[in-house]
Design a protein around this nucleic acid. Structure first.
Length: 454
RNA sequence: GCCGGGAUGGCAGAGUGGAUAAUGCGCAGGCCUUGAGAGCCUGUGGCCUUCUUGGCCGCAUGGGUUCGAAUCCCAUUCCCGGCGCCA
């Protein structure tokens, strides 16, 4: 949410910024906002004047009553006044709602360095690390590799849960866990606090962290409950300090979140949807920072360096782009994407680093104070950046580190997290083999007290 | 899930239908002092306004009763205690 006072003061600055976005709708909203805001202020002034009248009247009533004098004739006056106040208050409230709705639909102000453009073709490449791997054999995509190794089962995923769900097994699950732990340890060493957030959120805090369209396009709603499955741990992390005032000394506050992410992926037709790349459910380690407004641009670069270091340690070739005005979305003032090389030669997004400045914190009402005992001094800035989304990172590992024999050599940094597994190899026992579960595992113990402990 | 108690400023805590939300602590500024401290004085939430003046709102949130609500009623959220259920 933008600062309405600033908009009143410098409407042209905001207009120019929306023009850069090529956003005709926001320009219309801005005009409507200025008009309705003016009306609201008038109504408020009138309502206040009436309330002042009432306050004087009720004081008179109290005085007369105390003196034991007649006051009944004033009661009728008061009743009429109360009616008029209610009328004006209703109008003012409705008008304020209109203003708020318009305001919340305006996007964040773009940073000067954001390149102009329409779609991802206009994103500005700012860094390349490594180079594409070369193979003396036709490289496979990760789904073929995973299927051949017997560690990805797409068909059963679809059978049980529908398209966009997979069964992962054996070494691939260990790899997923290893990547999570690798990213977490890196972030913890950087001083971030490890947080496992709730995986579901109520609507109110949720509407503070994300664009309203996401409720239709992205989040799964739990039937019969005021709960939504989180699309990323960014959301519960951002909402964590909703309606709170943070102490300057505690800033910057860096959190590293670990959670599964649930996404409907409505409107993903025509996009790359193979295998692990675009799923309804995946695991992600997320960087999140609350900071003093003066620090956010420095920290934005630091978060970027963190992500890059993780991919470099994994030996994965990537490019960084400064996301253009047409692709950046409503929350971020500036955004870097990391795009990673895949076996078909296309670079696809694996992570996204946003400085939301005070846009998110205004919606969530997260402020800071300079010192204990003082009044709040302003809104914090928030930043969020992927550390590692394990699914997409696994795509890159499988495709960039694949071998001619169909195996995959794992990055050395993961060895300590997967003892004895240095490469992904064909599984001896395919999940397709019909084994008798009850015969192979002795679950019929005589200890009945343990029966319910699952 | 049931029963009971509760939610007041940055914090503690009074206020149980009628003026400015008492008082203390913290914080900010000033006086005093060579300096610090103590002491004393003033200020310390949000909104609107001609931004000096003035006015309104604010006692968890949303409704209601009343001329008038922190105070009475209803609903919701959260916290504490007890009971129940449970990995």
């Amino acid at each position: 949410m933008l600062d309405i006072k600033l908009i009143r003061k410098h409407p042209d600055t905001f207009k120019q910024n929306f023009v850069r976005r090529g956003d005709a709708e926001s320009l219309e909203i801005l005009d409507a906002l200025l008009k309705h805001d003016e009306t609201w202020r008038q109504l408020l002034t009138e309502a206040n004047a009436l309330r002042h009248e009432r306050s004087k009247l009720t004081n008179k009533v109290a005085d007369l009553k105390k003196a034991g004098k007649e006051y009944r004739n004033l009661i009728e006056q008061g009743k009429q006044l109360a009616k008029n106040i209610t009328l004006l208050e209703d109008r003012a409230r409705t008008q304020k709602q209109t203003v708020d709705e318009l305001l919340i639909n305006l996007p964040n102000m773009l940073h000067d360095s954001v390149p102009s453009g329409k779609d991802d073709a206009d994103n500005m490449e700012v860094k390349v690390w490594g180079r594409p791997p070369t193979f003396n054999f036709p490289p496979k995509n990760h789904l073929e590799i995973g299927r051949d190794l017997g560690i990805i089962d797409e068909e059963r995923g679809a059978k049980v849960s529908g398209h966009g769900f997979l069964y992962l097994s054996d070494q691939l699950v260990l790899l997923d866990l290893a990547l999570q732990r690798f990213a977490l340890d890196f972030m913890i060493a950087k001083g971030f606090r490890l947080v496992e957030p709730p995986f579901m959120m109520r609507r109110k805090p949720y509407s503070g962290v994300t664009a309203l369209a996401d409720f239709e396009q992205v989040m799964y709603k739990v039937e019969g409950e005021d709960l939504y499955m989180i699309a990323t741990s960014e959301h519960p992390l951002a909402a964590m300090y909703m309606n709170e005032v943070l102490l300057r000394d505690d800033l910057p506050l860096g959190l590293v979140g670990l959670s599964p992410c649930f996404r409907k992926e409505v409107g993903s037709h025509g996009k790359y949807t193979k295998g692990l790349f675009r799923m309804h459910q995946f695991n992600k380690v997320e960087q999140f920072v609350f900071c003093h407004p003066s620090d956010s641009w420095r920290i934005h670069e630091e978060l970027q360096a963190n992500s890059e270091a993780l991919y470099e340690k994994l030996g994965l070739h990537y490019k960084v782009v400064n996301v253009c005005t047409g692709e950046i979305g409503t929350l971020a003032s500036k955004r870097y994407d990391i795009n990673i090389w895949m076996a078909d030669g296309v670079y696809r997004e694996v992570g996204s680093n946003s400085n939301c400045t005070d846009y998110q914190s205004r919606r969530l009402n997260i402020r800071f104070r300079e010192k204990e005992g003082q009044s709040p001094a302003g809104f914090v800035h928030t930043l969020n950046n992927t550390a590692l989304a394990t699914s997409r990172t696994m795509v890159a590992i499988l495709e960039q580190h694949q071998q001619k024999d169909g195996t995959v050599i794992l990055p050395k940094v993961l060895n300590r997290y997967m003892p004895g597994v240095t490469r992904l190899e064909p599984q001896l026992k395919s999940l397709n083999v019909n084994i008798s579960y009850t015969k192979s595992f002795n679950i019929g113990t005589s200890d009945s007290s343990r029966r319910n402990e699952d």
